[in-house]
Computed example of a mutant assay.
Amino acid sequence: MSENQGLSLRERTRNAIRDQIAQVAIVMFDEQGFDETTVDQIAVAVGISSRSFFRYFGAKEDVILGDPMIYGEPVRASLAENIGTMPIWDAMRAAFGPVVARTEEDPDWTLRATRVMISTPTLRARNTEKHLAWLKVLEPLVADALKGSDNTRIFQARAITLAALTCLDVTSAEWVRRDGAVGNGQLLDEAFAFLKPVALTA
């Protein structure tokens, strides 16, 4: 996979083991429930010790939602590239391309993970924290592309960015509700089309 390019053999091996643990854990979370599944159960299923689990994940929650900027940085980079060449709202949609690509890469696994996240209050809270982290890096890019006073640009940029992140959340919930019958990218396109503000199409 491209994410392993440039990594040492040791790092690639670590990533492969981490992915293996995550694959098993996600299925268990989805079938048994997140809170009902213990680290000990995951470790037994994978064939490692519980201590070894924590070499790869700081907490059980990290299997679903780890470093918020793993995808936040590609989203930021995409927005930075596109925001000067297309309408702001369209640039926001394009920025989520890396997120959609991840769902298409392994839709079954991602659907399971999303279903677990939506159905678990602690994970939903962590997902909100993730989006707040994204807000901090996306909002300044949007503000720089707007006109008006500093206060006006910051206010509008926050409204636009949070609306876009809400589209992402609503799409994830709808994707799960339809059990993946309609593509995540198609649903995200529809959500953005519903809210496309006339003022940002020029």
Rank of each mutant, 00 (worst) to 15 (best):
F155R: 09
E129Y: 02
G148D: 01
T114W: 07
V100M: 09
V137F: 05
R93L: 15
W134S: 05
L146V: 01
W134L: 12
P98T: 09
I118Y: 05
E105L: 13
D144N: 11
R112T: 03
A133K: 09
E104K: 11
D106C: 07
F155H: 08
E139P: 01
I160F: 06
A164K: 01
G148K: 01
L111D: 02
E129R: 11
R153A: 00
D150M: 09
A125Y: 07
E105R: 08
I160G: 02
L123S: 03
I160K: 02
W134Q: 07
D144K: 10
T110A: 11
L123G: 01
T110E: 14
S149C: 05
D108C: 07
M92Y: 05
F96M: 15
G97Q: 12
V100S: 14
A143G: 05
A101M: 13
V100H: 05
P140W: 11
A94D: 11
A163M: 13
T161S: 08
A157C: 03
M117A: 11
A95R: 07
T166K: 03
A94H: 15
P98H: 13
L146C: 05
T122S: 15
A95W: 07
T110M: 14
E139S: 12
M92F: 11
R153Q: 01
R158C: 04
P140Q: 06
V142I: 13
A95L: 12
E105D: 14
V99H: 02
A159E: 05
T103L: 15
P107T: 14
N127E: 10
A133F: 05
R124V: 12
V116D: 02
I160L: 15
R153M: 04
A143Y: 10
R102G: 01
H131I: 02
E105K: 11
R93Q: 14
K130T: 14
V137K: 03
S119D: 15
A143P: 02
A94Q: 15
N127L: 13
R102T: 13
H131D: 13
R102N: 14
W109C: 00
K130E: 08
A113C: 10
T122Y: 00
A113Q: 14
R102I: 11
R126Y: 00
V142R: 06
P98N: 11
